[in-house]
Amino acid sequence: MKISNVEAYWLRCPIPKEKQHTSDYGLLTNFDMTLVVVTLENGLQGFGEAKAAVGSSGSCASIVSCIENEIKPALIGQDAREITKIWEIIYNGTRDHYALNRGRKFPILGHRGLTISAMSGVDTALWDLKGKMLGVPVVELFGGACRDKMPAYASGGWASADKIGEQLLSYTAKGFKGVKMRVGVMDGTVKESIKRVKAAREALGDDILLMADAHGTFSVPEAKKFARGVEDCDLYWFEEPISPDNKQGTAELRATTSIPIAAGESEYTAFDVRDMIELRALDVVQPDSAIIGGMTEAMRVSALAHAYQLELAPHCWGSAFSFMAGVNVAFASPAACVIEFSLGGNPMMYDLVNENIGAVDGDILAPTAPGLGLSPNWDFVNEFKQKIN
């Protein structure tokens, strides 16, 4: 079960024009991701995703370089079954022996940022491998599924006030009982964001869950104004209202509103999430397995959510690999209630893998296939992998 190779591919695929959308990230014309492949000496392969950006577009060259030049040399010859040990080796670098001997971290300087994103893809690939070795889905390795199915919410909602109702109703027509829309700086003014949310609630009625995601673009005063303006819209949560750099500001907002506050997709490691919890900044925790430190760290965040009576809602906006990583974490966690399902233009969700991913009457079924249950479409990979000088 020794690791013989670790590879990373930056994939960039054009989004069909009819499926493109404009947000605070601008007009998204391409979808990027880093596909991580861990190969054993017997030829068995595991797959994961590492992210250079929370959104769907961004250069992955640095992540590929980190995996190929820094992480790979440390992992060749390691036993792929020792996932926790490997996590410590990558996180602590040359001081990993101290960390393993003393039982506490001695992290390298890059213990936040792209190094953690890079190791996230490797970690997820190792869990995929272990599930395949044992013939079980990863959720079984985490203690089994807490439920047979979970409701999914449709994630999208970029339309203007006069079109947002129509856009969100097109999601519920597919069976989704919850929807998420984007707000924030993309609207120009707080007043316009409020107007769009009110229009959305009016169109949806009272029985559909409605979330609003500001992508961290409001200032603290703007977020307070928005929250006051939509107080009667029964938002299920208000996501990333303020920059993740301003955790105190997020806590300040939470203290002034009854709307649950969600965040965590931009955080690295459970230590960042712990800091937000200690500041009383969160009601809903949203780790992204392709950013937080892999499925290993996402499960540590899940334990924090459970201990502090918070809801866990993994960030599942990405390729099929990070989506299924989030799904397995969500099903293993008693703190999870809903799963994000991207309705933006996302070729990495469907064309990248050979399997079909979908919701059944708005629900996601518990995973049953070994590992993550996915295999890459190598024709797609070879067509869209980027050359890195």
Rank of each mutant, 00 (worst) to 15 (best):
H306S: 15
A307M: 12
A307S: 14
A307G: 08
A307L: 09
A307E: 05
Y308D: 10
Q309L: 10
L310Q: 01
L310D: 01
L310W: 10
L310P: 01
L310Y: 01
L312D: 01
L312V: 05
L312Y: 10
A313V: 10
P314T: 11
P314Y: 00
P314E: 00
H315Y: 15
H315P: 03
C316Y: 02
W317T: 10
W317I: 15
W317F: 15
W317V: 13
G318E: 04
S319M: 03
A320G: 05
A320M: 06
A320Y: 06
F321N: 04
F321M: 09
S322I: 06
F323N: 03
F323L: 15
F323A: 04
F323K: 02
M324I: 03
M324L: 14
A325H: 08
G326N: 06
V327E: 02
V327T: 12
V327C: 12
N328L: 10
N328E: 11
V329E: 07
A330N: 04
A330W: 01
A330G: 04
A330H: 06
P334Q: 12
P334W: 08
A335Q: 03
A335G: 06
A335N: 01
A335Y: 00
A336G: 01
C337Q: 03
C337S: 08
V338W: 13
I339Q: 13
I339E: 06
E340W: 12
E340I: 11
E340R: 11
E340Q: 14
E340Y: 15
F341H: 15
F341R: 11
S342L: 10
S342K: 01
S342I: 10
L343R: 08
L343K: 08
G344N: 15
G344V: 14
G345W: 12
G345D: 09
N346L: 11
N346S: 13
N346T: 02
P347V: 04
P347I: 06
M348C: 14
M348R: 00
M348K: 01
M349C: 02
Y350M: 02
Y350T: 14
D351S: 13
D351N: 13
L352T: 02
L352H: 04
V353Y: 08
N354F: 00
E355A: 05
E355I: 07
N356Y: 14
N356F: 12
N356M: 11
I357A: 11
I357M: 13
G358Q: 13
A359E: 04
A359H: 02
V360D: 11
V360Y: 15
V360M: 08
D361H: 05
D361Y: 05
G362Q: 06
G362Y: 12
I364S: 01
I364C: 07
L365K: 14
L365Q: 14
L365D: 09
A366F: 14
P367G: 04
P367L: 09
A369H: 00
A369F: 03
A369D: 09
